[in-house]
């Protein structure tokens, strides 16, 4: 499933760049992220707790920066995480694109999310809605975080 968000941050692009590529800091903006710690160059390990009604998922996995081009203002991330209670995994690629907008910066976030295994048997449309919500919250939180620095 593909998700797309755009937020505008009142901060110059280089400042935004610094934060979005600070994965542990940026990850704090994802609701439910418990901890993110470095695990090698451009790799991080972390845990994400997600709750949809009575269904609680604890996704353990890693995030890697797979591409970055500061000049173009684009970066790509890949996240893989597994839930061993329900049995399933998520796999996401996130493409970020920053664009100057007269002093402010547009952050475009394009996510391709796969919900794998039994996890995916829980209504896909609801999962998509939830993921969309989370990415929306992430984008807004990121905007606040940048503005607050």
């Amino acid at each position: 499933m593909k998700l797309a968000q755009t937020v505008t941050v009142k901060a110059p692009r280089d400042k935004v760049w610094g934060i979005v590529l600070d994965v542990p800091a940026a990850a704090r903006c994802v609701p439910g992220v418990a901890s993110v710690r470095p695990a090698g160059s451009d790799r991080y390990q972390g845990t994400l707790a997600v709750q949809i009604g009575p269904v609680r998922l604890v996704l353990d996995g890693d995030i890697a920066i797979t591409a970055r081009d500061e000049k173009a203002g684009t970066a790509s991330f890949r996240a893989d995480a597994k839930d061993s209670r329900v049995g399933g995994a998520i796999k996401a690629t996130v493409d970020l694109a920053l664009a100057d907008r007269s002093g402010a910066t547009d952050i475009k976030i394009a996510t391709d999310l796969q919900v794998l295994g039994r996890l995916g048997e829980f209504g896909q449309p609801v999962i998509k809605r939830k993921a969309d919500q989370m990415m929306g919250d992430f984008a807004e939180c990121l905007a606040r975080a940048v503005a607050g620095r």
């Binding site: 499933m1 796969q114 995916g120 048997e121 209504g123 896909q124």
Partner: peptide, 13 residues
């Protein structure tokens, strides 16, 4: 089917 995955996984759907 969405991206190769059957999304009607129970007889309620």
């Amino acid at each position: 089917v969405e991206d190769g995955r059957v999304t009607t996984t129970n007889l309620g759907d």
